[in-house]
């Protein structure tokens, strides 16, 4: 493989990272809303949130991507394929992140909130100062895990024509008749990015260690 082709692969890897980071970010925001709706006492909020989570966790991402890619034009929305890919990835990860957040909130020991209650904190202050910070810390490992899953899952957006790492490897493998080489390099790049993400996650967890549940 020439240096030029390798540079092409590296660029594609960068594109994969951009798509993944954007999806994780949008997914986190949507996930927070979905989680809030799921924890809401109002059934008309809780119920659709439940269906949302169940659907996006129960249907293969590939099918979701194909659906969104074909559904948007069918209802008259014409967008580039990368937008359809972003919508699909973000909604999928939002469903998982909503569940992670819900788990984090459920794991905050009741006693800590009783202590806040005794100290006179209002329900909103309890949420903002005690419940949310502890729950977010508890979900950091799950968030890192989700980031790695989405990075790998982003390979599927190649199917709807986004020229990211997997699609680039596919194109080069087809034109050079060297599938072993290009898929191995792509795999190595995915692995390297994942290790960096996992390492960063471990550092973040270490940084938060002093404030872990005693």
């Amino acid at each position: 493989m020439t240096a030029r082709l390798f540079e092409l692969m590296l660029k594609a890897a960068g594109y994969t990272v951009v798509i993944s980071v954007a999806s994780i970010g949008i997914g986190l925001l949507v996930g927070i809303l979905v989680c809030a709706a799921k924890l809401s006492p109002r059934p008309w909020l809780r119920w659709p949130a439940g269906v949302f989570v169940s659907f996006f966790r129960g249907v293969p991402l590939l099918v979701q991507l194909l659906l969104i890619y074909n559904l948007l034009p069918a209802v008259g929305i014409v967008v580039p394929s990368v937008v359809a890919a972003l919508v699909g990835l973000s909604l999928c990860t939002a469903a998982y992140q909503a569940e992670n957040l819900r788990g984090g909130f459920a794991s905050v020991p009741r006693g800590l909130l009783e202590a806040a209650d005794m100290a006179g904190l209002s329900p909103w202050q309890q949420f903002r100062r005690i419940r949310a910070p502890i729950a977010l810390r508890l979900t950091v490992p799950a968030l890192v895990n989700e980031a790695i899953l989405i990075l790998k899952a982003s390979s599927l957006v190649s199917v709807v024509g986004v020229i990211e790492l997997t699609r680039t490897a596919q194109n080069l493998a087809a034109s050079t008749y060297e599938p072993l080489l290009f898929y191995s390099v792509a795999g190595g790049l995915y692995l390297a990015i994942n290790w960096i993400v996992a390492g960063g996650g471990a550092l973040a967890e270490r940084g938060l260690r002093r404030g872990r549940l005693a």
Binding site: I148, K152, A153, S154, S155, L156, S158, T166, A169, Q170, A173, P179, L180, Y183, S184, A186, G187, Y190, L191, N194, W195
Partner: peptide
Amino acid sequence: GTPFLIQIFLLYF
């Protein structure tokens, strides 16, 4: 650490 799609491409192609 690698996508399943890449693994299956490696094996099949």
